[in-house]
Simulated assay, not measured.
Amino acid sequence: MLRIAVLGAGRIGKIHAANVAADRRVKLVAVADPYKEAVEALAADLGCDASLDCKSVVDREDVDAIIVGTPTDTHIDLTLQAVRLGKPVLCEKPIDLDIDRALAAVEEIERLNGRVMLAFNRRFDPDAMRLKQAIDEGEVGDVRQVIITSRDPGLAPREYLRHSGGIFRDMTIHDFDTARWLLGEDPVEVMAMGNRLIDPGLEELPDYDSVMVLLRTGSGKQCHINGSRQAVYGFDQRLEVFGSKGMVLNENHRPSSLRRWTSERTEAREPLLNFFLERHADSYRVELDHFLMALGQNGPMPATPRDGIRALRIANAAIEAANLGCAVRI
């Protein structure tokens, strides 16, 4: 039985730890986080060890694999520490906000033949996986256009935004990875615009809260991404793929699929799920499953650190394009 430690007891760490604890194929040995109250409460709830020192947990002989859900600026050190000990890692995105540091880390991981999966969890959303399957099976023919809508229900706390790396590197980077995955090619050019339509005060960071992005691949495939930090009706996430034989799309999730017709309203439905942890609860479980399958079968990781580099390059180009107001080659 694979023995796993989860680093981080925040909202992502809690999700990973709970999924590991619930999986009969593995054992949750420990959770680690410097915030004593959070980590002790999580460990007590899941019946594992608690530690305030992430690095010491990585070193433990009774830990076979690591899940990194700590702040971004700790990802490289903790991941490389585990890789040097021969331990596989599931690391939250991004590897780092700085492309040079991230690239150096990826090259070191590859030199050491490290088994590292980057947690682009939207690849593992069941609806998105079925959509990708339809593409792979030729249902839409040659992919021509991908349209991605990605809107959070509310603006994140200012302190989070201050250290997030900006909307393109923090939020839209998921969409950049999804675009690459669905298009089947890397974009070569990006056009982007960013505005502060929700909170003009974000200029001090500086950051945007509303963005639109156009991507073009070498063969001419197109992708349009629209993102917003605030959608008053809930977590709005939709994918559409248009091709030579037709189109596939997935819709938003709701607590219930029930629809009502009355004299006062037509097709009344439940509101959208209101947080990404609710919307993507399944994808985090499936993500862990694919990590474990890759390890058990000694197969390739389904999302690699190199995928993280490619998504970060697109994010950096989008920032440049938004700031300059012109198309940027990637």
Rank of each mutant, 00 (worst) to 15 (best):
A44K: 13
L131W: 08
Q297K: 15
D45M: 11
L182Q: 03
R11E: 07
K36F: 08
D59Q: 10
A231G: 12
P302V: 04
M117E: 07
T70G: 09
I95C: 05
L183K: 00
A231I: 12
R238D: 02
D96Y: 02
P34R: 04
P157D: 06
A294F: 02
L249K: 05
E61F: 03
A105G: 06
L272C: 04
S256L: 13
M293V: 11
D73L: 10
E137R: 00
L197I: 11
I173S: 14
S256M: 11
A192H: 05
N252A: 13
R84P: 01
G114I: 03
R169W: 00
V57P: 02
I314V: 09
A294C: 09
I66F: 03
A41V: 08
E159V: 14
L182G: 00
P206V: 08
V68N: 09
E137C: 05
S150Q: 15
P302S: 01
Y35S: 01
H280D: 14
A9C: 15
R279L: 05
D289M: 06
Q145I: 10
Y233M: 14
K221L: 03
A128S: 12
D125T: 04
V57F: 00
H290A: 10
D136C: 07
P200Y: 01
F276Q: 14
S219N: 01
S244Y: 07
L249H: 10
G201I: 12
V63M: 03
L273R: 10
A119S: 09
I66R: 14
T266M: 09
P200Q: 06
R25A: 11
A231D: 13
L118E: 02
K93A: 09
L7C: 12
D77I: 07
E137S: 15
N226W: 13
W261Y: 12
R123K: 15
S51P: 07
S56I: 01
F168C: 08
N19C: 08
T178V: 15
T149L: 09
H253I: 13
F291E: 00
E278M: 11
R123I: 13
L28N: 12
E320W: 03
H174F: 06
D73G: 01
L118T: 10
K221G: 07
L52W: 01
M293D: 15
C326G: 11
K14D: 15
R229W: 08
I95H: 04
C54K: 02
L183G: 04
R144G: 08
L46V: 10
N19E: 15
D142P: 00
K93V: 03
A134K: 03
A294K: 02
L103F: 06
D199V: 08
L85G: 09
I4W: 11
V143F: 08
G234Q: 00
L42M: 12
L239W: 10
R101S: 13
Y284T: 11
G138S: 12
I330M: 06
K87V: 11
E264W: 08
I135M: 04
P305D: 03
E270F: 05
V57M: 11
I76G: 01
A105D: 05
P94C: 10
V29H: 04
R115W: 01
G243P: 12
D64S: 06
F275M: 14
Q237R: 13
T262L: 15
A179G: 04
C326Q: 15
H174R: 02
V68T: 09
P255D: 06
L28T: 03
V232F: 11
I198M: 02
G325C: 10
G69H: 08
E270I: 00
S263I: 15
G86M: 05
I309M: 02
A315Y: 05
G201N: 14
